[in-house]
Amino acid sequence: MSGENLTSSEYIKHHLTNLTYGQHPDGSWGIAHGSEAAKEMGFWALNIDTLAISIILGSLFLYVFKKAATAPTTGVPSGLQNFVEMVVEFVDDSVKDSFNSRNPLIAPLSLTIFVWIVLMNTMDLVPVDYIPHLGQMVGIPYLKVVPTTDPNMTFAMAIGVFFLIVFYSIKVKGPGGFFAELAFHPFPKFLMPFNLFLELVSLISKPISLALRLFGNMYAGEMIFILIAMLPLGAQWALSVPWAIFHILIVILQAFIFMTLTIVYLSMAHEESH
């Protein structure tokens, strides 16, 4: 446990606070101490830990995969290349299974989503105190190591997917076609406002469900790790080991769900009406 002088609620709060940089209410710029201070900074503040860790992990993903892609490839694949190709084939198969149109963006998008989320979720398996404690040692007061437990992260990806859904819907069906899809289903045309309302809700629920599903799962998982970490030392491993093993499943499952739903939503965006 980091800091024996903390109460357990302080400990939990500390673990769930992002390192936020923004403008304090008094006009000075700096790091928020505590979530209330972060809230006071309003919208124009950055969660530095989320940004840094996610970008590091994303770069790691691209670096490793790029390395595997540029290595001599025709012969018998080596370990890393084999692994990368296995992941790529898995994603490619998923895309081929549920995406019926042709779009060169979808497969790389799915790969990026899948691997990036897996990497970010995997940060959850690093013991909860390691990185924040290290951060404290070098003077970083707050550090939330799992980017997917920050709704900013999950909503950012979901909004990215949402933009793509809207973009491809308009590109494939034209603005009129997209509007017709929203307005003229599922009821006849004279109920257009009602249709529009229904379809808009279902459209907007897509990114929200994507983001909240991932965020909720990872946040809950992280929370349980934190709670386990507050147990006496002898009891910790008895709970954290099974939970970590179970969490390996969640880590990959949530990434897979996010990826598959992205493919499905974009596939729907490409298909001509219902």
Partner: peptide, 17 residues
């Protein structure tokens, strides 16, 4: 736990990746 400009940064990072 607050929605802030990180959202924009992450969206940009996402698209770049």
């Amino acid at each position: 736990m607050n929605i802030n400009a990180t959202l924009i940064g992450q969206t940009i990072a996402f698209f770049i990746f």
